[in-house]
């Protein structure tokens, strides 16, 4: 009799334990999804900032038509891009165009003294940072989730309820990783 009671208590405890693991797995998976949507929010912020920037610098940079057009084109491509790989490609192009723009700005002391422009540039720097930090956070969340799926005892629950490992966000395009360099040769 006592044996059966002990067994029942053990089973109930095990079930409660499994439920708590299941819940924490669901929570982690939602964190991963949330982190992914954060990246999109920041990318959209960058798209919204660019027309402002172009409007502010237009008067100063008559000789840099090509650079500015480059940014505008990259932006419109990025806005209309569909699908993950196409989006990543367009965003990488936009990042590259912005990098070139930042280098060109160094040649315009008037522009660098403009309060409006300085505020905008801080916004842009911050947005670029937020994009990379939200990617970093996404990868962190994926790491926690994947660790939980692989580690004992949560791996048993994960396997029986078919939790799949998530994929890390890698920057495929080399251009986005490398800081644009000027060559003097």
């Amino acid at each position: 009799m006592t044996f059966i009671i002990v067994l029942l208590i053990a089973i109930v405890l095990l079930i409660i334990f499994a439920i708590s693991i299941y819940n924490s797995l669901v929570g982690l998976r939602n964190q991963v999804k949330n982190a992914w949507s954060q990246i999109d929010v920041q990318l959209k912020r960058r798209h919204d900032l660019i027309p402002n920037l172009i409007e502010t610098v237009k008067g100063y940079m008559n000789h840099e038509r090509a650079t500015l057009e480059n940014i505008t084109n990259a932006r419109s491509k990025a806005v209309s891009a569909q699908g993950v790989s196409e989006k990543a490609k367009a965003e990488a192009q936009l990042t590259e165009a912005m990098g070139k723009f930042n280098l060109v700005v160094e040649n315009y002391p008037d522009l660098k003294a403009n309060q409006n422009f300085l505020a905008l540039q801080e916004e842009l720097t911050s947005t670029e940072n937020k994009i990379s930090f939200s990617r970093q956070n996404y990868n962190d969340q994926v790491l926690f989730f994947n660790n939980k799926i692989q580690m004992f005892p949560s791996n048993i629950v994960a396997n029986s309820f078919n939790f799949k490992q998530e994929v890390f966000f890698e920057v495929e395009d080399k251009a986005e990783r490398a800081v644009p360099k000027v060559s003097f040769s």
């Binding site: 964190q31 911050s126 937020k130 930090f133 956070n137």
Partner: peptide, 16 residues
């Protein structure tokens, strides 16, 4: 201080 707010928000994002 816009920059301070931006930095706090960046770290808020990074730390989830």
């Amino acid at each position: 201080h816009q920059q301070l707010f931006n930095i706090v928000e960046e770290m808020k994002i990074a730390s989830n």
